[in-house]
Design a binder for these strands. Structure first.
Lengths: 275, 275
DNA sequence: GGCAATATTTCGTTTAACGAAATGCTGCAT
DNA sequence: ATGCAGCATTTCGTTAAACGAAATATTGCC
């Protein structure tokens, strides 16, 4: 099903309408598959065929969807603006992450230098056990749940510094739990230093992180610590965007619309020292 | 497979993040189906969940796709022709912009002299708070959302005339809101004068702008105003190239009139004086 | 008229979608 | 504390759809 989106993206990215063969090559899928997917997409109005050539291009329904998405973009931009501000302060790439299952997912990311390619990397995923954000999330869980989520180990090794044994990881998590700061010095990517602080919702539960990272010669853990106040400030600002409803919900049905602020899982109250 | 697009459209169309139940009702699909589809879409980065609430909203990958679609839609040729026609009339560089998050993005552009430079510049970005188009977009938002999007300020200064304080900006936005014309006299680039008018979709929502600009000695605000009718004409023509709103997919559930009615809030109409 | 290049169909296999119903959470009210 | 209500998530047997190698049809071109 996501293959269809891959095809769609190729169509959208192309400067000119594409032939079936071109799409087949670019998507790396067998031809009949691409053909069938395109048939579906065409039936759904998401792609069109040029009347003359049999080439595929963006369909009306996709254009409409794109417009709706663009119109809503300001709603999602608040967090991006916060990240941009943070990047200006710290001068290094920063990102905003959430936990999704046994991975960390990059919700948004702002690079230091290039102001344009921001969305390229966001949406990608990294492991929990060897990243600053990931370990910060793990530190919020009771130990047995960590074991349940990651298994008993050993965990995949990415660099010489990756923690691969459960006992060592639990020890590291206790430290992080106490300090409220996730760190990663080359545990996932060689020569990459990363520092993550928690973003908490109204109930004080950690639901996201704000992190900065940079290359090892330029960034060290010690230097990064100087930016903790800036990171914390950004994290608080992020927290403010997740509690309050972005737009007042319409009256709608009698259903529980008012229940925006939610939950408070007995299991995962904030375990973090608010240093 | 097209069901997934239906779900995606509902997410894109919503003014605020949606819960699983809301989506289930609006799509007219069984709950586990919607749940599974959303899981896939989430894994693919096409939708995201609100950090705290379990609601779904537009994901990074979908945002990226939407921008690509706008940049390379089959309507591109038509839009370009409209811009070229406009450039002939006004004799200055003109462009077609949309808001993308907290920036203005150039969808298309035609220069006065060299007719080949178009693709070079399209896709590039400029700030909201100090450009004619950007301020026009901002003027469409309620004041508290402007503050949320840009922060409290001060905003980055580019020239001596850049408005860097929130209060002054809000005042300027009120003026623009009333007049329906965005202006910029050297606030972003020294010596550049710019005039922007809104492009509205069928629902009257401001979704893009058409703007002209030129160097200060040759172009002044007063002279530019003479071309307002031409700009407006081009803006109307541009509006016709913009997609219609997504048509509701017929839910299989009893077409509950009072039951599920979501309705557009009256507020979302154009806030601009149609002078 | 024939040759390439490209588009489309066939078909048996495999996989994933499907959705009714059951279960699990969470927060609120008693 | 307890239970209830609303919502999210999982289960599971069924069924339909995706899959892709290979064969076939179409198209454009010389």
């Amino acid at each position: 099903m996501l293959k269809a989106f891959g095809v769609l993206e190729q169509v959208a990215r192309a400067e000119a309408p594409l032939s079936l063969d071109e799409l087949t090559q670019q998507c790396g899928l067998p031809k009949p598959t691409v053909y069938r997917i395109l048939g579906l997409l065409q039936r759904g109005g998401l792609v069109q065929r040029e009347p003359a050539a049999k080439r595929y291009c963006i369909g009306a329904r996709l254009s409409q969807l794109a417009l709706e998405v663009m119109l809503r973009s300001p709603q999602r931009a608040r967090r991006h603006a916060i990240l941009q501000q943070l990047v200006e302060e710290v001068g290094e790439t920063c990102n905003f992450t959430m936990q999704d299952g046994n991975e960390v997912v990059y919700i948004d990311r702002v690079e230091t230098s290039s102001p344009v390619r921001l969305l390229m990397e966001s949406g990608s995923r990294v492991p929990l056990h060897c990243t600053a954000s990931g370990k910060l999330f793990l530190s919020q869980l009771p130990e047995h749940k960590v074991a349940g989520l990651l298994g008993a180990g050993p965990y995949p090794r990415y660099t010489a510094r990756t923690i691969t044994e459960m006992a060592a990881l639990q020890k590291e998590l206790r430290r992080i739990r106490a300090e409220g700061i996730g760190t990663d010095v080359g545990e996932y990517l060689e020569g990459s230093v990363c520092l993550a602080v928690p973003v908490t919702d109204e109930q004080g539960r950690v639901c996201a992180t704000v992190a900065m990272h940079g290359p090892a010669p330029r960034v060290t853990l010690k230097k990064a610590m100087d930016f903790l106040p800036a990171l914390r400030r950004a994290a608080v600002a992020m927290g403010a965007t997740i509690g309050a409803p972005i737009t007042p919900r319409g009256p709608a049905t009698a259903s529980g619309v008012g229940a925006v602020g939610k939950k408070l899982p007995a299991r995962s109250r904030s375990r973090i020292a608010q240093s």
